[in-house]
Nucleic acid binder design. Sequence first.
DNA 1: TTTCCAAGGCAAGGGCCCTGACTAGAATCG
DNA 2: CGATTCTAGTCAGGGCCCTTGCCTTGGAAA
Lengths: 390, 390
Amino acid sequence: MNFERSQPAPVSPTPGDPAVPSSPDPAGAASPDSARAPSQDLVRALTDERVIRALIDHRRLTRAELAAEIGISKPTAGESVRRLTERGLVADTGERTPGGRGRGRVGSYYALAPAIGGALAVTIGPEGIVAECLDVYGDGIASATRHPEPSRVGAALAEAVSEVRDLTPQPIRLAVVSAADPVDRVTGRLVQLPDSPFLVGELDPVAIICAYVDGPVIVDNDVNWAAAAQGRRDFAYLYLGEGLGAAIVDDGGIRRGSSGLTGEISHLLTVGPQGRAIAFIDLFGELGLRKPGTTAIDVPRLKESSTAVRETIATAVGGVIAAVIALADPEDIVVGGSWGPFLIGEIRAAAARLPRQVPLRAAAPTGSPASVGVRAEAISRLRASITADL
Amino acid sequence: MNFERSQPAPVSPTPGDPAVPSSPDPAGAASPDSARAPSQDLVRALTDERVIRALIDHRRLTRAELAAEIGISKPTAGESVRRLTERGLVADTGERTPGGRGRGRVGSYYALAPAIGGALAVTIGPEGIVAECLDVYGDGIASATRHPEPSRVGAALAEAVSEVRDLTPQPIRLAVVSAADPVDRVTGRLVQLPDSPFLVGELDPVAIICAYVDGPVIVDNDVNWAAAAQGRRDFAYLYLGEGLGAAIVDDGGIRRGSSGLTGEISHLLTVGPQGRAIAFIDLFGELGLRKPGTTAIDVPRLKESSTAVRETIATAVGGVIAAVIALADPEDIVVGGSWGPFLIGEIRAAAARLPRQVPLRAAAPTGSPASVGVRAEAISRLRASITADL
DNA sequence: TTTCCAAGGCAAGGGCCCTGACTAGAATCG
DNA sequence: CGATTCTAGTCAGGGCCCTTGCCTTGGAAA
């Protein structure tokens, strides 16, 4: 077994595949710090970590600048740089301090070595596949896009990742993936839930991507990544498009649940026509608003529907909101997806009839909030993985 | 402002009261460790911390035993004990190693000094008030109980806490409180939600208890504490008694939401008679199962009700379970409260008709799970507060 | 060319921990 | 009852990491 350890995340180096390099996880899962060596090479490691962090923030620094920035002495800074250079994590850029700075001796600029590698950020959805390689600074190094037919998603994913891999000189230390379908938290696979629209289809991104990446592959639902990108502590994101979903952020962290299916609200009971209780997704079946032959909602038809139908839908959404309030107590609720913001007026009215009130906002129609969240996670994990191994 | 910092918790030293000692919070909220001094007195602090932890675990140890236990050298252990003794955290117990141990020189047993203090664990519910003082080892030092009339809850709480305070020689460093009503996460007050049973009533435990305690006062709902005591990573606890509630544990942490009202499921929509959508609590009104004159459910009447009514209730609970599954994705659901386990068979049958399945368990009828959770939290916070200030 | 001045290196010193040897002191053995 | 045995605690020496203070280096300004 070599599951990813870091707690707040969905997971998944493939358990069985021997071809997968997958992070070695040296010397046992380190508990908070105190489990570490009782001795004082800990403080050296800490110094090195601070040097790396300073170089992430400032891109290039002389040893004197490092000392000033971190608050350590010059000899210590010099020693740390020497150690890190020896390990290949830091390199002399060859640049020297510009003459303009003053008259003193010129300093040598050091920066993180390219060998520290990059991270892959991948989004998979009905609108296509985007794979992108980012460096520690958060800059894009390379990217590739595909718009495959539904049957070729797996192959196209492999192509895109392979292309990015070839375009990237650095090693790729991990991948973070967003998929537009429910993701099984344990295996990282896309799963089909009964009666839910299945936009991407059967897919095991971990198995495909692992071959091109040296470390863990993290997969999660796009709605979760979009929610993570909001940077709020307690809120809920209601996704109302061809599929139905929700993401819940509590105490600053995304709530995933035991199998990662938190927010799959299709089967939530709510109010249907004539006040009957009905599963949320079934409402659209009854109203004839599902795309024929699929499980997806027919959004264009929905948008053209009568006022009465829209009221009915909004009332049902109100029931979903009541459930979200009861079970997640968000500070506010963001309504997104292809038709959610379209009905925001009716939904607000329906929510106003609930016993507990929560502010509702329509999602800003930004490009793709999920990819923002994926990128942020990829960068933060890349940085963590660098400082993790001393 | 002096809100408690530690993230995973509901909070509340009173903001305004100048009479409140309330923890000083010295030198800024320390981030994980790296924000600490860059130097190596950090490792000394770490050593001291380990000594304290070892003394918590073993109660009394000689310096030689400490060295062996922690894995440090004897001189280092001796130095640490000297420092800690000087600071009043550790004391020579006067006990000496028993002759039976061997023939060598007798050693001096050291233990944590009484001055490190204790923690208050308080439960407030319709069945009464219990205040209890615990020491670092988790042993009860003193306790007091009250069974006040509803109008005297505040006064009785003050009495009980005061009594425990007087019985305790040690300083009391913090209090953890369980209350049988919804707790506002920000203020720590008990809040009345529309149409919910309000068992304890208007109360501000923080304001009352603060006067007797040197540190923070943490208040939360009893259902949350009961859930926390289960020690599982991802599950939900459904409380079905005179009041209705739920607690959600995700990734090992209790979910509270922005105002602490996560799990207040009274207004969740579910299936009522004739398949109509109805708020969970209203069902009991329609069935005539609410105590006259109150908002509480009449449990004896409920238990005597007909099979049809029980089926109806179980179906409604099934709807609540569907919502919990959709929005929390628990590994399993524990059903507790005064009538939940009573209907577990019917509820299981209703849940079996849902599209997604989750194992249901009846809560073990242990004494009071909430007080277990409160005690555990009090002890763990007490220990953390000791090791926190070096 | 000389002067200036910051970068970088060297040496000394302090703190913390470790190892190994020594002292202290009580129980057990002969 | 003294010698032996064995362990608690202390002392001395040494390594590692960091700091301060001073010196050297080497371009730019004068």
